[in-house]
């Protein structure tokens, strides 16, 4: 009897130690990935904060306290770049997400003809790089470009519109570009979400006499809420960080009317006389804005 107890204890101990051993081995699986993320995301954030407390030009940095942050408050270019990205955000994200939702709703219909063609066609802009599509749009909307030529040939325009030359036409061009590039991407998320909704819910609603609009607002949107939230957060973050498009479509112009915050940080660090400390302060403010907005969206999403 003692023997069997010892056997059981050994077996118990072995089982336990194997389990513990496995959990130890598991750490070796996750540590390389975790270390890289700590080194290239979290460590630089801390560095950015420390850097933002330093003043000076190039590599001659010395502690300056909150001087950079004070300067931010009166920097017209910083305010302008912040204004610009909020213009993109407020104009573009609602238009794009509504369009994506409508398209997903139409394409979710299994009886629709040429369904996969439409889906591919709308999704295809995602295959283009941001630089490439920015340059295509810039070329099409150039003063002597395709769009003006066609509009003038059709006698819709007397003289060419300087799309890239006016502050609001340039901003709208960026909004059009962003919508072109990302609508299909968001649509794919909604399509994936719609496929998880049981079709019998719609059947039941139809029998009860719910209109198409009712079905959209009472079934589709509530059921898709988590995905709508996710796409809103992703688009908000993406828009606040916009760089490739403003650099290649308008290069921040005219007169900084399309300059984004990321591009401003880039200019402060790599185009003007490098002021890394000040650039880091701008960057840190962006980080805080992104964090606050995401947090707010999560809160609002939770309540509804």
């Amino acid at each position: 009897m003692i023997n069997s107890t010892i056997e059981k204890f050994k077996a118990y101990k072995r089982g336990f130690s194997i389990n513990k051993k496995h959990k130890m081995i598991g750490w070796f699986f996750v540590i390389p990935g975790a270390l890289l993320i700590f080194s290239f995301y979290f460590y630089p954030i801390v560095r950015a904060f420390l850097l933002s407390l330093q003043g000076g030009v190039g590599n001659n940095l010395r502690f300056a306290g909150a001087a950079n942050y004070k300067r931010l408050l009166v920097d017209p270019l910083f305010k302008k770049s912040l204004f610009n990205v909020f213009v993109y955000l407020i104009l573009q994200v609602p238009i794009m997400l509504t369009l994506a939702l409508i398209l997903a709703g139409i394409l979710n219909d299994k009886t629709l003809r040429f369904r996969s063609f439409f889906r591919t066609a709308i999704f295809v802009p995602c295959a283009t790089s941001l630089v490439s599509y920015a340059i295509i749009f810039r070329s099409m909307f150039a003063l002597d470009g395709f769009v003006n030529t066609i509009l003038m040939n059709m006698n819709l325009l007397g003289e060419p519109i300087n799309w890239l030359g006016g502050p609001w036409t340039a901003r709208i061009l960026i909004v059009i570009g962003l919508t072109w590039r990302w609508t299909g991407y968001n649509m794919i998320f909604y399509l994936a979400g719609l496929q998880n909704i049981d079709p019998s819910i719609y059947e039941a609603a139809k029998i009860d006499g719910a209109s198409a609009f009712d079905r959209l607002t009472k079934i589709t949107i509530p059921m898709l809420k988590p995905i709508i939230l996710l796409t809103t957060i992703m688009s908000t973050n993406g828009t606040l960080q916009i760089f490739d498009e403003t650099k290649n479509l308008t290069n921040g112009g005219p007169a900084n009317a399309t300059l984004s915050v990321s591009q401003y940080i880039y200019r402060l660090s790599f185009e003007y006389v490098p002021r890394f400390g000040y650039a880091a302060a701008v960057a840190f403010i962006v980080f805080i804005i992104v964090a606050i907005l995401s947090f707010m969206q999560l809160k609002v999403g939770d309540e509804r």
Partner: peptide, 17 residues
């Protein structure tokens, strides 16, 4: 949480590193 870190925020320290 690293998904929330905008690249523009870390690009200067990364470049220096």
């Amino acid at each position: 949480l690293s998904l929330m870190v905008p690249f523009a925020v870390i690009m200067v320290p990364l470049y220096m590193l």
